[in-house]
């Protein structure tokens, strides 16, 4: 069978063709292609890694933000409470002081009124005593003259007395 007899010439040319192809492709094709593919794979791997890192950092930042926010909220509540306390204290103090002032003014006024009243009463008493003495003096003088005169006198006196 001619089909099964290898031809030396064709084997020779096949070897030449194969070696040339191997050399040219190996040097100018496979090397850059494989290098490029590897670079791309490395690039993709690194990109995914970087994305993961960023994601993790974002999560960290978020939790940090949340804790900060909570802290701020607490601080605000604290401040509000303190402010309220201060306000209440100021109001209470003011009220107390006002009450004390009022009391003092009222008591002062009362003592002045009492003093005036006592002075007025004393004067009245003095005036009444004087009048009684005057009346008694006149009555006593009339008694010495006549009975009629006395009576008349009394009557006059009585008339003259103005009960003021």
């Amino acid at each position: 069978m001619e089909l099964l007899k290898p031809d030396l010439g064709l084997m020779f040319w096949t070897l030449i063709a194969f070696l040339i192809t191997l050399w040219l492709l190996g040097k100018f094709a496979w090397k850059p292609i494989l290098k490029g593919l590897e670079a791309r794979e490395k690039n993709i791997k690194e990109s995914i890694q970087a994305a993961e890192n960023v994601k993790k950092e974002m999560a960290d930042l978020k939790s940090e933000n949340e804790s900060l926010l909570a802290k701020a909220r607490d601080e605000r509540a604290q401040m509000m409470r303190e402010a309220k306390e201060t306000r209440d204290k100021i109001i209470a103090d003011a009220k107390e002081q006002a009450r004390q002032e009022t009391n003092k003014i009222v008591s002062d006024a009362q003592s002045v009124i009492n003093q005036q009243k006592m002075a007025a009463l004393t004067e009245l008493k003095n005036n009444v005593g004087k009048l009684v003495i005057e009346v008694s003096e006149k009555i006593l003088r009339r008694e010495l003259s006549s009975k009629d005169a006395q009576e008349k006198f009394i009557r006059d006196l009585a008339e003259n007395i103005e009960l003021n």
């Binding site: 094709a29 090397k31 292609i33």
Partner: peptide, 11 residues
């Protein structure tokens, strides 16, 4: 070879 080298140039 020409076909592959053209592809390799792209890379």
């Amino acid at each position: 070879i020409i076909f592959m080298i053209k592809i390799a140039r792209k890379y």
